[in-house]
């Protein structure tokens, strides 16, 4: 019987992973809350099968991505794309900060990607190598490399769309 206390402690230490997945897959705050709850529950249900062969963070990524990809919303709201109004609030926003603007544009461009591409980007951002990403996604490292190249091109093009002309 897995220890609930131990699980809660581990999840608390790694909760940024779940937040990252929720931020990437859901636009609306309520949807993110629902997904956070669902990932937490699925992780708890699967925790008995966690044998510690992999790092907890890797295991949690797998559970979180599986849950996010198969997450079912009754009424699928159209905008998976972030408009400026839907973009997460980063606190103080300097509209003249070009780096900030580029990050926002890239964030929005990632929001345009398919669920699978988002998962690959997320793992790439976490510095997982192509072999690890392949293991988590259930595809070969070569396939990951090909996909990653395509994603980079897509993002480069798409980011331009979200950049406001100077």
């Amino acid at each position: 019987m897995p220890s609930e206390k131990e699980f809660i402690q581990l999840l608390n230490e790694h909760q940024r992973i779940i937040h990252k997945v929720c931020n990437l897959y859901m636009d609306a705050h309520a949807d993110r809350e629902d997904l956070f709850q669902e990932i937490t529950l699925q992780a708890w249900k699967a925790y008995a099968g966690f044998r510690g062969d992999a790092k907890f963070s890797t295991w949690l990524y797998r559970v979180a991505l599986n849950t996010a990809i198969t997450f079912f919303r009754k009424e699928k709201k159209k905008p998976e794309i972030y408009s400026s109004a839907q973009m997460p609030d980063y606190g103080h926003q300097d509209t003249h900060d070009p780096i900030e603007e580029q990050v926002k544009a890239m964030y929005a461009a990632i929001g345009d990607l398919s669920k699978i591409d988002k998962a690959i980007v997320m793992l790439y951002l976490e510095d997982y190598n192509y072999n690890d990403i392949g293991d988590m996604m259930g595809i070969t490292a070569n396939n990951v490399a090909v996909k990653m190249n395509r994603i980079k091109i897509k993002l480069k093009e798409s980011t331009q769309k979200y950049m406001t002309p100077a």
């Binding site: 249900k45 699967a46 099968g49 797998r62 559970v63 991505l65 990809i69 198969t70 996604m137 259930g138």
Partner: peptide, 14 residues
């Protein structure tokens, strides 16, 4: 109930 398998295998099962 095994959501810890690879994404592709999980999708196939669902």
């Amino acid at each position: 109930t095994d959501s810890q398998q690879p994404v592709k295998a999980n999708l196939q099962a669902v």
